Amino acid sequence: MLEHFEIILRSFTSFGLLLVGTRILGKQTISQMTMFDFVATISLGAISANLAFNTSLKVSHTILAFVIYVFIIFMIALISLKSKKGRKFLAGDPTIVIENGKILEKNMNKMRYTLDYLNQQLREKDVFNIEEVLFAIIETNGTLTVLKKPQFRNVNKQDLMIPITPEFNLPIELIMDGEVMKQNLDQNNLSEQWLHSELKQRNLVQSNVLYAVLSGNGNMYIDTYENHIHSPIDKE
């Protein structure tokens, strides 16, 4: 019984350490996994897992190892931030794999990057014809960045000289799950009276609204609990 209690306590400690460690190290390890980030994440996970269930290891020794790893990763991140050479050594450089519609097989071979995987990543970028690609680059975190040739790029409103409505703010969530987001209203100098007035103009009341958001151009999107869709395409 005492052993079970110890494992429970060690598991909570392990989870707490991981949470604190990731907060210290920031979001880059999650959002931009370079090779170094990958190794660091696996190492921290392994130490935390051993702390949780490996009762043969002393808790103090495992926590010390975890703290040392976090310190090393944090210092290396600082070096990468301050030094371009250090950043290049740790993360490497982006690699061009397609130039002007031509596959650079030597660069692909260096990375052991297959044509099948290249085609898969191109399709994920809505590219089905390699001739459309001006440059395709493998970033340091393994993702593929594609720049199409000018004649294959999407046309935007500026190209067509269509007038646009300027946007100066991020969308503001006003109602979520039927509850008024009072903090968002206060931060943007909006009142509940104004919100209810906007709903009234649309013949709605708060209890009918699932979600309401004010876009950056001043338009309001409202989704009600009743969708008025009699035959949903996908029904659970």
Rank of each mutant, 00 (worst) to 15 (best):
L2I: 12
E3R: 10
L9Y: 10
S14N: 08
F15Q: 07
T22V: 14
R23L: 14
I30W: 04
M33E: 01
T34G: 13
F36W: 00
F38L: 06
T41M: 11
A46E: 06
A46H: 07
I47D: 01
I47A: 03
A49N: 12
L51C: 11
N54M: 11
V59K: 10
S60H: 13
L64F: 12
A65L: 07
F66Q: 01
V67W: 02
F71I: 05
I73E: 08
I73A: 11
F74E: 08
M75I: 15
M75Q: 15
M75F: 13
A77G: 15
A77K: 14
K82Q: 15
K85I: 13
F89G: 13
F89E: 07
L90W: 06
P94N: 01
T95N: 11
I96R: 02
I98E: 00
E99Y: 04
I103H: 00
N107Y: 03
M108G: 03
N109S: 13
Y117A: 02
L118D: 10
L118R: 08
L122T: 00
L122W: 00
R123I: 05
K125L: 05
D126R: 05
F128A: 03
F135I: 10
A136F: 06
A136I: 10
T140K: 13
N141W: 15
G142P: 08
G142R: 13
G142K: 13
T143R: 06
V146P: 03
V155S: 06
K157W: 15
L160R: 10
L160N: 07
P166E: 13
N169C: 15
N169I: 15
L170W: 10
L170E: 11
P171I: 07
I175K: 02
M176R: 14
D177F: 09
D177N: 13
D177K: 12
E179N: 12
V180E: 04
Q183M: 15
L185M: 10
L185Q: 06
L190I: 04
L190T: 02
E192K: 13
Q193A: 12
W194D: 05
S197T: 14
E198T: 11
L199I: 02
L199K: 01
R202G: 04
R202Y: 03
R202K: 06
L204N: 02
Q206V: 06
N208P: 01
Y211D: 03
Y221R: 04
D223I: 08
N227F: 14
I229R: 08
I229W: 07
S231M: 02
P232V: 03
I233M: 14
